[in-house]
Design a protein around this nucleic acid. Structure first.
Length: 369
DNA sequence: CAGACGTGGAC
DNA sequence: TGTCCAAGTCT
């Protein structure tokens, strides 16, 4: 094969570091400046596991109240494994990335049934559990059992990108970053070292205005030595987000109950409840859209009434505007054609059901009406 | 293997 | 209002 015309990925050579000093300076800093976090007061793999899953793509500050409530509701792996999925989703409501809750629930059942309720200590076993990838596995095994397994989360990517002055965006340099994380991990203190690395990223080596004067690694950091700490890591390329217009129906029947439906367990907001609706087609009015969608999804006839509110909401990969209308049920037997389940509920009991954030805003408006 | 997958904080 | 991105994983 003639690779003359191919773009060959540039091999990135790791710099040479004084590992003993690198490790010691970070561990000393961590002893003095490390964060006090609830999941650091335990070595119970379940308690650490829950924290690792909640912390995926989610800031510590956001996680803290959810973590406490979760452990009140599901204090043990067994209590989680035996819970209903709807209750699990309710405890996760508002945290986002709901596959994390579904996978955590499923994985707890696997540990209970296939590992006799004892969290596995083999990396290869841990990696088979749904929702646990390389970073989460390393986080759990190092924190719970002090195993020497490296991690590469958002903090570590940023710290190491600067440490080695990575000349490409982190997504393009994953191989090098993992190699470096492996290289510098202190085999004598993997638990503290991994935690320290994340704290350094969260408190010192932050995205904007890194606090280099407080950093224990200035003498090792290539970005700092080159004055590039504000330019690194290189930013990822982004695409413009599509914007969808959605017609949403709050359908009342003559008894004053509201129709809600449960989304399929896979995909966006899987397993959560919602007010039915759908995408407004080009040249279609909101009213026509809502009537059409409700007929297609639930097979009932409704009268589309007043506009309750229009809501803008941003997801990771698209934006939506929800055009919410109060509707009146007319005829037909509701059928769950494009959803899992349909219920007529009162405003008093609606809080028992897990809803996505965009829908809880609607619920608050209905209560205040 | 890029794209799917939530929400909120920071600027 | 917009952009970036946070203790990533799955397909």
């Amino acid at each position: 094969m003639n690779d003359k015309n191919k773009l060959v990925a540039k091999e990135i050579t790791l710099p040479v570091f004084n590992l003993a000093d690198l490790r010691q300076s970070l561990l000393t800093w961590y002893q003095q400046q490390g964060r006090q976090l609830p999941w650091r007061n335990t070595r119970d793999p379940y308690l650490i596991w829950v924290s690792e899953i909640m912390l995926q793509q989610t800031q510590v500050k956001t996680v803290l109240p959810y973590y406490q409530r979760w452990l009140d509701t599901f204090p043990t792996l067994e209590s989680l494994a035996k819970a209903e999925l709807q209750g699990v989703l309710k405890a996760w409501e508002g945290l986002g990335y709901y596959s994390r809750a579904r996978n955590l629930h499923k994985a707890a059942q696997i540990v209970l049934n296939e590992y006799n309720g004892v969290f596995p200590q083999q990396l290869s076993d841990v990696l088979t559990l749904p929702g646990i990838g390389r970073t989460t596995a390393g986080g759990i095994l190092s924190a719970a059992f002090n195993q020497s397994v490296s991690i590469l989360d958002g903090n570590v990517k940023r710290v190491l990108s600067r440490l080695m002055a990575l000349p490409v965006p982190p997504k393009k340099g994953l191989k090098s970053l993992w190699q470096l994380s492996d290289l510098i991990l202190d085999p004598e203190n993997p638990r503290d070292f991994n935690q320290a690395l994340m704290d350094l990223g969260a408190e010192i080596c932050v995205k904007t205005k890194p606090r280099c004067l407080l950093c224990p690694w200035t003498s090792h950091c290539l970005a700092y030595q080159q004055g590039q700490q504000n330019q690194l890591p290189m930013t990822e390329t982004t695409k413009p987000l599509p914007h969808k217009k959605i017609g949403v129906a709050v359908i009342y029947n003559d008894a004053g109950l509201i129709l809600i439906d449960r989304r399929p367990n896979k995909g966006l907001l899987g397993g959560l409840w919602e007010f039915p609706g759908g995408k407004i087609e080009p040249d279609e009015t909101v009213e026509d859209c809502i009537k059409r969608e409700i007929k297609e999804e639930i097979d009932i006839e409704i009268e589309v009434g007043e506009n309750l509110v229009n809501l803008d909401h941003a997801y990771t990969h698209f934006k939506v505007t929800l055009y919410v209308h109060i509707c009146r049920y007319l005829t037909g037997e509701p059928k769950p054609i494009e959803c899992e389940e349909i219920r007529w509920v009162s405003l008093e009991e609606i809080d028992q059901f897990p809803f996505p954030k965009a829908n809880t805003k609607i619920i608050e408006m209905l209560k205040n009406r």
